[in-house]
């Protein structure tokens, strides 16, 4: 059911663009205004989200670590798994963001027929996730050709590397192929495995299906239903230089893709997709594990009036002596 709702949502988005551009001819609405609105929602929403997180105090010292903390000099410390200084934190976060290090340790627990509980590594999610995210990054980077004039040579270099096999005209990009496979896997694992299906929400499916819709429409535009991409770049350059024009001759499929992208961009700050910013703000990951070197005091500790045992004994010394109770300090 949840899958169907999400699929339906994506289909409705496609239909909205189809009706808006194909039937009503609202080219400047879908080509200029909605992308502007989506960009504004993205930036304002993301800043709002991050500032809201920044306002949340982090009183406790809660890094989750899985390595030896720095303690005595003859005990070998692991500064990446259990960082005690800023460089360690940077290395740990960088490995987390670039290589999904903690996901690499993902394990599967299974009860086999022999009534044996089996623990095994499960690297497919890591591999699929990593492939998807890196491909998405490379594809976004490649799209800079539409936003920069003249096109920087580093973008052209990445594009050349991506299409290194020169297969088909225009060249099939490897990232397009890999992202399709990875997204299909990420979608199917939520559908096929009953445990994952049980914990999946509509928004989980929606994010995958929406990105899949963007990728599929992009691949269709590139390989099968080609558009005049010089006109597309004119549109893009007009938008980002705040002198928007709507050139003639851009096909409906492009506007459908642009509407899906606009939705994705506007949806980003308010959905699970914002984990991109959240990963850097996770106290369990970005704090140093230096609790043996520095005392962390909760700044909110209420100034409670304490009556220490020392003072208690001082106060009741005589009475305690009379009763024969043991005293810490004899007189």
């Amino acid at each position: 059911m949840k899958v169907l709702y999400s699929l339906l949502a994506v289909i409705v988005l496609v239909l909205v663009a189809y009706v808006g551009v194909g039937l009503l001819g609202l080219h400047s609405l879908f080509g200029v205004m909605i992308p502007y609105a989506a960009g504004a929602v993205f930036i304002v929403g993301l800043v709002y989200r991050v500032l809201k997180w920044a306002k949340a105090p982090v009183p406790f010292h809660i890094p989750t670590v899985c390595g030896q903390q720095k303690s005595l000099p003859w005990i070998k410390a692991n500064n990446i798994e259990s960082p005690h200084n800023t460089w360690g934190v940077i290395a740990r976060l960088a490995l987390e963001v670039l290589l999904f290090r903690s996901l690499f340790r993902n394990e599967r627990v299974e009860l086999r027929r022999s009534e044996k509980l089996i623990f095994g590594g499960n690297k497919y999610l890591w591999l699929g996730g990593l492939a998807f995210h890196w491909c998405l990054f490379i594809i976004l980077f490649r799209h800079l050709i539409y936003f920069m004039e003249p096109v920087p040579s580093v973008v052209l270099f990445v594009q050349d590397m991506d299409g290194i096999f020169e297969f088909a005209v225009p060249t099939l990009f490897l990232t397009d192929l890999v992202i399709l496979i990875a997204l299909t896997y990420l979608f199917l694992r939520r559908v096929i495995y009953s445990q994952i299906r049980y914990i999946s929400l509509s928004s989980d499916y929606f994010a995958v299906l929406l990105i899949l819709g963007v990728v599929i429409s992009g691949v269709l535009i590139r390989l099968f239903y080609k558009v005049d991409i010089a006109a597309v770049k004119e549109l893009a350059m007009g938008v980002i230089s705040f002198r928007p024009t709507v050139p003639e001759g851009i096909s409906l499929l492009f506007y459908i893709k642009l509407f899906l992208v606009s939705t994705l961009v506007a949806y980003f700050p308010f959905s699970k997709l914002v984990h991109g910013a959240g990963i850097l703000l996770s106290p369990t990951r970005n704090l140093k594990n230096n609790s043996r070197m520095r005392r962390h005091i909760n700044p909110w500790d209420y100034p409670v009036k304490v009556h220490t045992y020392e003072k208690y004994e001082e106060e009741f010394r005589e009475a305690m002596k009379e009763a024969g109770l043991p005293l810490e300090k004899e007189n």
């Binding site: 930036i43 991050v50 920069m148 004039e149 003249p150 350059m237 980002i240």
Partner: peptide, 23 residues
Amino acid sequence: LIIFLCLITFPIYYNIATGKAAY
């Protein structure tokens, strides 16, 4: 946050710097 915003808006400044935004 400021570094991130500068990065994603980089093409805007780049086109202003090269002066080819209207090309």
